[in-house]
């Protein structure tokens, strides 16, 4: 009996079990401390749709054995470039959003290719190098946001006239363009952001489908056992670059969806730490440094956003103090440390 219980816990994973029970507990307590369950559910769904794609973006790189993408910010930057350039061109509505997507993808391909080349050169040290590449890219772009000759008055500082604002509203361009698409209400407090969810689902489908093609199969084999792949005539380095480009593109799309939902394009230091919550979420969902499945993405995004939504409201009402930020730091970084210390499965 004890053995079986152990087996079950091992299967689901202790951290996941703890976090899920914690989340459940929060939902149970919520009504007693004056937090509405339906608004909470609404928030969780909205955040899930908003952040899910960023979590999904980690998928191809884990699959190909490149590890956790600590340089996710590169994709985010591609997305930001797409967003601001599309705004600069003053294309509004759906066309504006599509334009942003196209520009983002172009940048993501370029960034992803260079980033992938670099990661191949530093095999074994990918994660630490990626972290700092991500950080330096963000700080480099901070300089660029100041210097690039953007002219749209909606985006530049009202007084100085030079340089982009730290936050730019998407209002009037493509604010909630996906969220409001086919959205509907359940009860009085739950709005389903159908468009954003559909877009997320579409990307999941594309990723899933890719891994059923010849190239995707090769990518999975490279991640599973690079020596095997090499002995089958696969160019391992090339496949790894493909996965990095793929991840970077999805991250770029992820930030665009995030912005249309959030309502603002956040520049300068805002993307600096964006890799960590996404990584924490996918790990929370059951992925490891070397293994991932689609349900890890979905479950992880849901659990992580659930915790982020529920802790501030419930805990703050419960103990009358704002511990949510601290709890977020401990959970998300603790999750990453835990994953990094787990031994990779020894081949024997």
């Amino acid at each position: 009996m004890n053995e079986r219980l152990k087996g079950i816990i091992e299967n689901i994973g202790l951290p996941r079990l703890l976090i899920a029970s914690f989340l459940l507990l929060l939902f149970i307590i919520a009504p007693f401390v004056g937090v509405r369950v339906d608004t909470s559910i609404n928030d969780v769904i909205a955040r899930f749709a908003m952040n899910g794609i960023l979590v999904l973006s980690l998928f191809p790189m884990i699959k190909s054995g490149c590890g956790l993408n600590f340089g996710l910010q590169l994709g985010v930057i591609a997305g930001l470039l797409g967003a601001v350039i599309s705004l600069e061109m003053k294309v509004t509505g759906f066309a504006g959003f599509v334009l942003a997507i196209i520009i983002s993808i172009v940048f993501a391909i370029i960034f992803g290719y260079l980033y992938g080349l670099l990661l191949n050169k530093v095999k074994g040290e990918e994660m630490v190098v990626a972290t700092y590449v991500g950080f330096s890219a963000v700080s480099f772009m901070s300089i660029m946001w100041l210097l690039l000759p953007f002219k749209n008055p909606d985006m530049i500082w009202a007084y100085g006239g030079e340089g982009l604002r730290t936050t730019i509203s998407t209002e009037g361009y493509w604010h909630h363009i996906l969220n409001d698409f086919l959205s509907f209400q359940i009860g009085s407090h739950i709005t389903i952001p159908t468009g954003a969810l559909l877009f997320f689902a579409l990307l999941c489908l594309i990723v899933w489908a890719f891994f059923r093609t010849k190239a995707g199969t090769a990518m999975e084999a490279v991640g599973s056992n690079p020596d095997y792949a090499r002995s089958c005539g696969i160019d391992v380095d090339r496949v790894r670059i493909q996965s990095v480009i793929f991840s970077t593109i999805i991250a770029a799309l992820g930030i665009l969806v995030y912005q249309q939902s959030f309502g603002f394009i956040q520049l300068y230091n805002a993307p600096l730490m964006m890799a960590f919550p996404a990584i924490a979420a996918i790990l929370l969902g059951g992925a490891s440094v070397t293994k991932v499945k689609m349900w890890n993405v979905l479950l992880g995004a849901l659990l992580f956003q659930g915790i982020l939504t529920m802790t501030p409201s419930v805990i703050n009402n419960l103990i009358k103090s704002d511990m949510s930020e601290t709890i977020r730091i401990i959970i998300s970084n603790g999750m990453i440390v835990y994953a990094l210390t787990r031994r990779m499965k020894v081949r024997s």
Binding site: S224, N225, D227, S231, C232
Partner: peptide
């Protein structure tokens, strides 16, 4: 080539048999 390092190079241990058998033919 059938490698002497069966588990290290010869197989995708965490993938099903059908993949293992067909993979090279599919890719090559």
């Amino acid at each position: 080539f059938v490698s002497e390092d069966r588990r290290g190079i010869g197989l995708l241990l965490d993938q099903p048999l059908n993949w293992n058998i067909a993979f090279t033919a599919m890719q090559v």
